[in-house]
Design a protein around this nucleic acid. Structure first.
Lengths: 213, 213
DNA sequence: TAAGAAACTTTAGTCACTAAAAATATAAGT
DNA sequence: ACTTATATTTTTAGTGACTAAAGTTTCTTA
């Protein structure tokens, strides 16, 4: 653990690249910025950028990752003050994710991120994305457990698996939201709500001994 | 509507391009084939290929579309001989789609198709994909209506919306399936089944006056 | 048949990305 | 300190998707 010079230089270089990329993507937009120009600004060669981040989209992904903690914090905050209706909780979960996403990148750029993460297919760099997903699914699972404990979600359902289902439903609606420049956040919210209400229909526990035929 | 020479030539050219692309993609694989070489074989310039199909991935998409009718036929066949359990029907729907997909393209190539259709974001060429989706959702909706009519799915649910939800759920599981080279069809089937069983929990109509508390 | 329009080809270029060789700087051994 | 080994980066050269614009061919139509 000597943390030699070589090691420090690597960290420094990767930070420089990230710093430059953040600034330029922000001010000029993803497409307008070339890897070559990022490399120049960061005082490395273009090949070095590729060695560090693999692809242009991955560089973007590394940037996105920086905001992960904030997103996780927001979702954990939701866990602290959950609405009475479990469906509202899930809908809000989706809304938080959508809003968060839109504050960091444009739809155009999100498409780039999603497309490249599909292309990479879980390999090498592509795993960054998956790691976050797992954490988020975990939070969703926690929420399900809470509703089960307070008796408003039937305990027959396996929380983790169900959380995964809900999360992926939210995920594909996000893909669609991002793929359609005309779809506003309000519409996206409506669509996901419809999903959630359909999925939860009669899945809640009714306390006043209701009868179904 | 004279169907002039010019028009016929265009059709002929686009067919030639598609024919060559089909053969080469099939025998050499998507990545190994260059647009330039397709153009050469089809006796047009590369730019003409771009003018006709926009991108390489779109050329692929045009090929995929050829098998659409077969897929639609298979799903309609399912509609004719539905299982008793609605959940089995939905699971089978997913299985048919997965199997069909795998007979035409490799996972690697599907990733390419999906990624590019996300990138294009519903614009121009990208709509091809959406058109098929709408048809498939329609079939799923038909299936839901049938179960409602025969009294095994609660009529409170709006069939079209619910079909959309189920279809998209299947869709994202397909994305995941294709993104993970290690995920076999059996696993994919299991995962989607878990989704479907969770979604349908208590959504069916129980004929023998069961009671829930 | 000649003007006009449509469609194609050529040309030139940008950019992401890759492989391999060459250069350079750090680490390690003496 | 000095040399050798090694890690890492840069240079070089190239492929291939994709685009814009100018030039050329070919069909259409008056």
């Amino acid at each position: 653990m000597t943390s030699g010079l070589r090691e420090r230089q690597k960290i420094d270089r990767s930070n420089r690249i990230l710093d430059v990329a953040r600034d330029r993507f922000q001010s000029e937009g993803y497409d307008a910025v070339t890897i070559e120009s990022i490399a120049a600004d960061a005082n490395v060669s273009a090949v070095t950028v590729y060695n560090y981040y693999g692809t242009k989209a991955n560089l973007l992904l590394a940037l996105v990752k920086e905001s992960d903690e904030r997103l996780i914090a927001q979702l954990r905050a939701l866990t602290e003050s959950l609405p009475l209706d479990i469906r509202e909780a899930v809908a809000e979960f989706g809304q938080i994710m959508r809003r968060h996403a839109m504050t960091y990148l444009t739809k155009r750029t999100w498409r780039e991120v999603i497309a490249s993460s599909i292309l990479q297919g879980g390999r090498q760099f592509g795993q960054t994305y998956q790691a976050l997903d797992r954490v988020l699914i975990g939070i969703m699972a926690d929420i399900m457990v809470i509703y089960q404990q307070q008796g408003s979600l039937t305990p027959e359902i396996e929380a983790a698996g169900f959380a995964d289902t809900l999360f992926e439903m939210q995920n594909i609606r996000f893909f669609q939201f991002v793929s359609d420049d005309d779809q506003g956040e309000a519409t996206a919210d409506q669509i996901f709500r419809r999903d959630v209400w359909a999925i939860f229909a009669t899945k809640q526990v009714y306390h006043h001994s209701e009868i179904r035929t």
